[in-house]
Design a protein around this nucleic acid. Structure first.
Length: 873
RNA sequence: GGGCGCUUAGCGCAGCUGGUUUAGAGCAUCUGCCCUACAAGCAGAGGGUCGGCGGUUCGAAUCCGUCAGCGCCCACCA
């Protein structure tokens, strides 16, 4: 075996082994199910660091559940990502000189499918490198047959229930993607622009009303000016009419308390077609609505001479023109919030258009209580608030998109107007004939709606549709796997996805879709910046795996990723992971290199094996508890310390035979057993190296795997706390001696004598350990230590190492003085408490008792120190 | 503008219902070591008074108030 662990071949070998034996595959059986559905990544995407973290966590949970004897099922899959994928395909076609508008819907979809087949699933291949134990036989896709039919069925069902409606509303329009968006797809950003003060001439007078606006280009759509009826400053405009600058159109002055008297001049221009609030005013006062924009954000014919100009170019131009015409009072720098499209990153245009909507109050009412009552738990809990706030202020969901890549809305329009919603064309025709009584109707007379559905309208069914629970309610699989156990995802999609899955879960399964949601943090770079393609600060995960091994990368990610906290990713974390792998590897080499002999177990080895058994039990219980609380980083850290500090640095050093000597069989067997348990504990975090070493620890049969090696027995029983305590004190003594060596530069080879003061007694086994780890020539229990000995305190006992020729009295004295001061200060603190009547009266008796113990301990130490100082002086 | 959260060693964090040896691990730092498992290592050491102020209490990093800084979410002031 090489002194350095080389993960590459080993990882590939075991992943194939797991696949060959179908270890990841799950079928319903009598065991308790443990289910996770993957947050489906974009089908044509590649793996970003966020997904690495996310999927590492899922794999840890799944593997742990498997080891706990549950029927673990992790279902993978991908999302068609309607708008994102369509944009990519449009781009690709553009590079070939093909415009989307030149293609028929069918032709375009053919290109999109080609693209999907070409790039689809790359991301899932990457997950295999990471070691993800997904049931690949179950891989789903939001646009495959089962999922598509489920979406259509749900749409029809909700329409029949009256929860889906079609109507003209003000929606968020993306002028680049040329589609409506939901409110959640709009991101507000601060925009540094200008506030323009425009002069509106009062009709028939030589006076002007000044209006402040950030969007002067919309004046062509103005159909009123609005003032607050209570505003004295603008009262003079009541009942008047004003002239829209440049345009020349005369519009009325209306009054509404909506207008903020403090803002700008108190006059508001009203453009019902291009502002949500203005739209409401327009409805209220029955104002005409002039749409001056084309779908792509250029000015329309209605804008007169500015027609076909881009909206932002137009803003500049119009500002100049107003200036020239003397109609611009002034401009000011101004910062406001502007909504941007999440996908295309262009400013959203509020636009009046015909869309499909889902009523949300019904869903919000179902989805709120289980979370608030902690039946469905969020980790961390703080997201409960966010969730609550959203549900309590929810608006209807715009679910139609003017895109082709997605699930086409199953609505067919009739020649004479009106429409039919049905699961397919034949059914639509049947219903159409029934509705109209016109038996001459044919399929060709029906025109299907050209829009498709929001991507999230399929994702929200994911935990159900993956088990075909929409098409076949109550089937064996959905009954077994649903509700799923845990969902692991980012808090950024709590509204898009998490909340809506909860809604769909209650609507279609009458039950929550998952019992726990683990919100991961966002992966950032060292400087705290979000990792993104445009910044180029995201490392290539496959490259990291190549360099550090999947186990190393997994550990690196987990080391600093408590739920909900962002992680500042740094390659050095992976390095730490890799180093740990190497440590484990070398421990294995050491242990497997020993020869055994049929001799009795020496006392020191007995102490070591008893102690480590207790340590294992203690830590395993801790790990179990941390898993229950989803504190996975801490669980990993606990195992890391157990392995590196306790097992490698202490236990193995204690039992290690002298060079070339064999080890007694009993100790050896026990050690292999401990190694086995350590590997099992560690397996969920580092699946590959643990499998490799577990397989080599002893003879294994073909088809065996650490994946199914139970962990339940490790935390079994009560750890011997007395033994744990006494070994901790032993470690202190060893550290004390080593410290003396270090400070005085005494070579490890030079044997030292240890003197134990006072009443302390050491077991023979303890003395043997001390001799072994400190290289002692002898241990003496003495009343008076040798003159010029170096001393230290462990527990409440003073120890001395006689060193006459080495010791520097002054230095020694200084050290003792400092320690004495510290102890005296400590004692003062304790005495202050104990001297306080009210403390003794009010504090719980065991607290008071503990203070007395502290006092006692401190006093013994002080006595010992004083004695030493006196002896030196 | 509203809501939530954070502020503990150089760094990123843990410290739950106040009291468990005058604050804990990890990484980094410093010192000494190639001693045949591991220099991707071993041994040892240093480092914070818990953002500021005020309060409650016998006792506060831990509870309350307030100020400051940071972050996130939500929101139609043009």
């Amino acid at each position: 075996m090489d002194a350095k662990y080389n993960p590459t071949d080993i990882e590939a070998k075991w992943y194939q082994y797991w696949l060959d034996h179908k270890f990841f595959h799950s079928e319903p059986d009598g065991r308790e199910p443990y289910t996770i559905v993957i947050p489906p990544p974009n089908v044509t995407g590649v793996l970003p660091m966020g997904h690495m973290l996310n999927n590492t966590i899922q794999d840890i949970l799944v593997r742990r559940a498997r080891q706990e004897g549950k029927n673990a099922c992790w279902v993978p899959g991908t999302d068609h990502a309607s708008i994102a994928t369509e944009a990519k395909v449009v781009n690709k076609l553009a590079q070939q000189g093909i415009k989307k508008t030149d293609l028929s819907r069918e032709e375009f979809l053919e290109h999109a499918w080609d693209w999907t087949r070409e790039h689809g699933g790359i991301i899932l291949k990457q997950l295999r490198k990471l070691g993800a134990s997904c049931d690949w036989d179950r891989t789903g896709f939001t646009m495959d047959e089962v999922r598509s039919e489920s979406v259509i069925k749900v749409f029809c069902d909700l329409y029949r229930k009256g929860l889906i409606y079609r109507g003209v509303r003000m929606v968020n329009w993306d002028p680049k993607a040329l589609t409506a968006l939901s409110d959640e797809e709009v991101i507000f950003k601060e925009h540094h622009g200008k506030l323009y003060y425009l002069r509106y001439k009062v009709e028939g007078e030589d006076k002007y009303a000044i209006v402040a606006t950030t969007r002067p280009e919309t004046i062509m759509g103005d159909t009123a000016m609005c003032i607050n009826p209570n505003n004295e400053k603008t009262a003079w405009l009541k009942g008047k009419k004003v002239v829209v600058p440049l345009v020349g159109r005369v519009i009325p002055v209306i009054e509404d308390e909506y207008v903020d008297m403090e803002f700008g001049t108190g006059c508001l221009k009203v453009t019902p077609a291009h502002d949500v609030n203005d739209y409401m005013l327009g409805e209220k006062y029955n104002l005409p609505s002039i749409d001056i924009f084309n779908d792509n954000g250029t000015l329309s014919e209605a804008a007169g001479l500015y027609a076909s100009m881009d909206r932002f170019d137009c803003r500049e131009q119009i500002a100049k023109d107003l200036e020239a015409a003397g109609l611009m009072e002034k401009t000011e720098d101004y910062t406001n919030n502007v909504g941007f499209s999440e996908r295309t990153n262009v400013p959203i245009e509020p636009k009046l258009s015909m869309q499909w909507f889902l009523r949300m109050e019904h869903f919000a009412q179902m989805a709120l209580p289980p979370v608030m009552e902690d039946r469905l738990r969020f980790y961390p809990q703080k997201y409960k608030n966010t969730y609550k706030h959203w549900l309590e202020n929810i608006k209807d969901w715009c679910i139609s998109r003017q895109l082709w890549w997605g699930h086409r809305i199953p609505a067919w329009y009739l020649p004479e107007g009106g429409f039919i919603v049905a699961e397919n064309e034949a059914e639509a025709l049947r219903l159409a004939i029934e509705k109209t009584g016109n038996h001459a109707l044919t399929a060709a007379d029906l025109k299907q709606d050209s829009d498709c559905l929001d991507t999230w309208f399929s994702s929200w069914l994911w935990p159900i549709s993956l088990f075909d629970g929409i098409r076949n309610p109550g089937n064996k699989e959905i009954n077994y796997y649903y509700p799923t156990a845990d969902l692991v995802t980012g808090p950024d999609i709590i509204f898009f996805w998490v909340a809506r899955m909860i809604m769909a879960g209650y609507e279609y399964q009458n039950e929550m879709p998952f019992r726990n949601v683990y919100f991961t943090g966002i992966v950032r770079d060292k400087l705290g910046r979000k990792m993104s393609k445009s910044l180029g600060n995201s490392p290539d995960p496959l490259d990291l795996i190549e360099r550090f091994g999947a186990d190393g990368v997994r550990m690196g990610m987990m080391l600093s990723a408590p739920a909900g906290n962002d992680i500042l990713f740094d390659e050095s974390l992976c390095e730490q992971g890799r180093n740990f792998n190497n440590k484990i590897w070398n421990c294995f080499r050491l242990v497997k290199g020993w020869q055994t002999a049929d001799t009795d177990q020496p006392a020191y080895a007995r102490l070591a094996t008893d102690w480590f058994a207790a340590k294992l039990t203690e830590t395993a219980a801790e790990v179990e508890d941390l898993f229950k609380k989803y504190r996975l980083s801490e669980a990993l850290m606990a195992i890391y310390k157990l392995f590196w500090d306790e097992f490698s640095s202490w236990y193995l050093e204690m039992i290690k035979p002298a060079y070339g000597q064999p080890i007694d069989r009993c100790t050896y067997e026990l050690t292999l057993g401990y190694f086995d348990r350590l590997l099992r504990l560690l397996h969920p975090f580092m699946p590959f190296i643990t499998e490799e070493l577990w397989q080599n620890l002893q003879e294994r049969k073909e088809g065996e795997s650490i994946m199914f090696a139970a962990v339940g027995d490790i935390a079994c029983g009560q750890a011997d706390t007395v033994l744990l305590g006494s070994v901790e004190e032993l470690k202190q003594i060893i550290a004390g001696v080593r410290n003396i060596r270090q400070q005085r530069n005494i070579a490890p080879k030079e044997a030292l004598m240890l003197q134990v003061m006072g009443e302390k007694t050491l077991q023979a086994s303890e003395e043997q350990v001390l001799v072994k780890l400190c290289n002692l020539s002898s241990i003496e229990h003495v009343g008076q230590k040798a003159a010029g000995a170096a001393t230290f305190i462990a527990g409440v006992t003073e120890y001395a190492v006689p060193l006459d020729k080495f010791v520097n009295k002054d230095e020694e004295l200084k050290k003792l003085q400092a320690e004495l001061e510290h102890q005296e200060g400590f004692l003062r603190g304790v005495m202050a408490k104990l001297g306080n009547e009210r403390f003794v009266q009010n504090a719980k008796p065991d607290i008071v008792e503990r203070e007395r113990q502290k006092q006692h301990d401190a006093e013994s130490r002080i006595a010992a120190l004083k004695e030493s100082i006196a002896a030196l002086g």
